[in-house]
């Protein structure tokens, strides 16, 4: 269970990269935010603006929004990678600020471009990285690596070199690395960017199975075509604010207004009372 209450994230003017902690990272928030985000009165940039949100265990949520809408920054507050300027975030009832380790175990995160998040030369060594950091005994680490690789259809591939993998395989290794932490929620930030059609399908298929097995899934995307049929709920962001929150068939009516790609077979519904807006 992830609970956000009145979360606002503001970045300082300029955003000095060397300072490290202030930089949100991906293009979604760095370049995009400065151009499209709401500029705050007192200097700096408002990436997330007063968001209150809760995500249940086992829920499949899609966080949708155009580049620069603040979606990457928002999900990074779930495990304390970004600390809100104001507001609170709690995971399983505990404040993220107070127990970072618990939050990062409970919320596994996979980022855009898996090439820049895999740390070891081989699949097995990479997936073991997280559990090793948790200080688990070796047998437990090995068991988790096996289970995580099985969950992404990469059993028996421990010794394969990361450098030789395809894009889809790398994405699945990154997911396995997050699963080895045994998270309650798996957050994937733009998981399909740069993948070809078969790779997208295999990643999607794995995500669907994980959801079926009880793991909560959060997908961050500007392209809803692949995930639309799977989602329990769609949260639409625009300029750092939640503008849509509801089941897909209800949310779709408002989606074109926030500039995300939607599946062709869900034309915007103009029904007056079906907008599904969370805020009036």
């Amino acid at each position: 269970m992830i609970e956000l209450s009145g979360v606002t994230c503001r970045y300082g003017p300029g955003g000095d990269r060397r300072a490290g902690g202030t930089d949100p990272g991906d293009g979604d928030t760095r370049a995009g935010e400065t151009r499209n985000g709401t500029t705050a009165g007192e200097g700096g940039v408002l990436a997330v603006d007063d968001v209150t949100l809760s995500i249940d265990d086992g829920e499949f949520v899609v966080i949708a929004g155009a580049n620069g809408s603040g979606k990457t920054t928002l999900v990074r507050t779930f495990n304390g990678l970004v600390r809100p300027t104001t507001g609170t975030v709690a995971v399983n009832g505990r404040s993220v600020e107070e127990d970072l380790v618990a939050a990062r175990e409970a919320v596994g995160m996979v980022f855009q471009d898996p090439r820049d998040q895999l740390v070891a030369a081989t699949i097995g060594a990479d997936v073991a990285f997280g559990p090793e950091n948790l200080g688990l005994p070796r047998e437990e680490i090995d068991r988790r690596v096996q289970a995580a690789l099985a969950a992404v259809n990469l059993s028996g591939r421990e010794d394969d070199r990361i450098a030789t993998l395809s894009g889809g395989e790398r994405e699945r290794v990154a997911i396995a690395g997050a699963l080895a932490m045994e998270p309650d929620h798996l957050v994937c930030d733009e998981p399909f960017t740069g993948l070809d059609e078969p790779a997208r399908r295999s990643v999607l298929d794995r995500v669907r199975t994980l959801h079926g097995d009880g793991t909560g899934i959060v997908i961050v995307t500007h392209d809803l075509r692949d995930v639309f049929p799977l989602a329990d709920r769609i949260v639409g962001l625009s300029n750092g604010r939640v503008v849509v929150d509801g089941p897909p068939e209800r949310a779709v009516a408002s989606l074109p207004g926030i500039d995300v790609r939607v599946p062709a077979r869900y034309p915007p519904d103009t029904g007056a009372d079906e907008t599904g807006r969370s805020k009036p």
């Binding site: 990062r104 950091n133 948790l134 997050a178």
Partner: peptide, 20 residues
């Protein structure tokens, strides 16, 4: 910068289980 965030997300720690 992307890698650093990914390391943090995976609980990068000072006291890990040592490789065998």
């Amino acid at each position: 910068d992307r890698l650093g965030v990914a390391l943090s997300a995976r609980c990068f720690a000072w006291n890990p289980t040592l490789p065998p």
